[in-house]
Design a protein around this nucleic acid. Structure first.
Lengths: 180, 180
DNA sequence: GTCTATAATTTGATAGAC
DNA sequence: GTCTATCAAATTATAGAC
């Protein structure tokens, strides 16, 4: 009773995170659910609508998971560790990179509404990181450190996935928790 | 007199680095050169062949540029700075992310030969970094630090490109040259 | 090396019945 | 909500003439 719309989004997210935006077709989604592609268009009039819905749902879930991980974290170091764990879980629980990491790479080839939603996700990430760091360093340093942490974890997911080696993620992530 | 094959690869590299593997079609490549798609198949029998050729050429050029940047660099710090500059130049000179960063993200949706070539590029990157660091730290640390640097720069390109803000790349990259 | 011609398949999308 | 039916366009790829 999960609802066709949610099931379609589950399938689409899997597809985008594996092969990218253009690797997902309405027909494939329909086949996976045993319905017809015309029915998919009932739930998402255009592919762009599906893309935006995917990013919104992913972002909402990501920050829920992050809040759960960071709930008892007080020090900046603990909060960054919680942030790294959230990314690691996203990688291992689905054996795929971040939805927004994929769409961020494909930015120039996407409908504007989709790449904008991705950008918002990254801006929220940076704001969360700055908020976790700002009390313990200058604004300038918190700004730079936030970009460094987000970039490293996004790159680590891509690298670890391509090389099929989780230790690459862990090695890269270890570098962002040092220096406090 | 650049040769049709090279011109096709120029156009294809531009397309893949912007929108991904599936955003490039033989017809678009042909149109860009004023020829027919059948002629593209003369130069690259299958799309997979084009993909592998692109990665090989990109890798060769990247390491040539890297060697030029690092020619006079002796200390690990200087060599890492040269490495960062090479990535930054790749980003700014084409206003697009790394070819292998894009294809690495799309790994699961690519012909195996293409994702393997991308993996080789990353392995060569890590070997170069380890070689630049190994004399000054343990093998374990050099291994981890190499993954950290490569992941950060790849993620920084993606992030900076999506957010259309080069300062994001610089802020992220600043984090890899500290701590020597 | 490039062309015409063509094939088989896939794509995003719509109209209208049930 | 899902279906049938359909569409125009795009895709990878091949055969064979020039």
């Amino acid at each position: 009773m999960a609802g066709t719309r949610e099931l379609l989004m589950d399938e689409a997210e899997r597809g985008v995170r594996s092969g990218g935006y253009n690797a997902v077709s309405f027909r494939d989604l329909a086949d996976a659910l045993g319905i017809k592609s015309a029915s998919v268009h009932y739930h998402f009039r255009k592919k762009e609508d599906l893309g935006v819905a995917l990013v919104d749902r992913y972002s909402k879930r990501f920050f829920e998971a992050l809040d759960a991980q960071a709930e008892i974290a007080r020090t900046p170091e603990d909060r960054i560790r919680a942030y790294c764990r959230t990314y690691r879980d996203a990688l291992t629980s689905s054996d795929a990179i971040c939805l927004c990491g994929m769409l961020g790479a494909e930015t120039s080839g996407l409908p504007e509404a989709v790449s904008s939603a991705v950008r918002e996700f990254f801006e929220e990430n940076l704001a969360w990181l700055r908020g976790s760091l700002s009390a313990h360093m200058t604004d300038h340093d918190a700004h730079a450190r936030s970009a460094h942490i987000l970039a490293t974890l996004q790159g680590a997911m891509m690298l670890s996935h391509n090389m099929d080696d989780l230790s690459v993620f862990d090695a890269a992530a270890a570098g962002v928790t040092s220096g406090f």
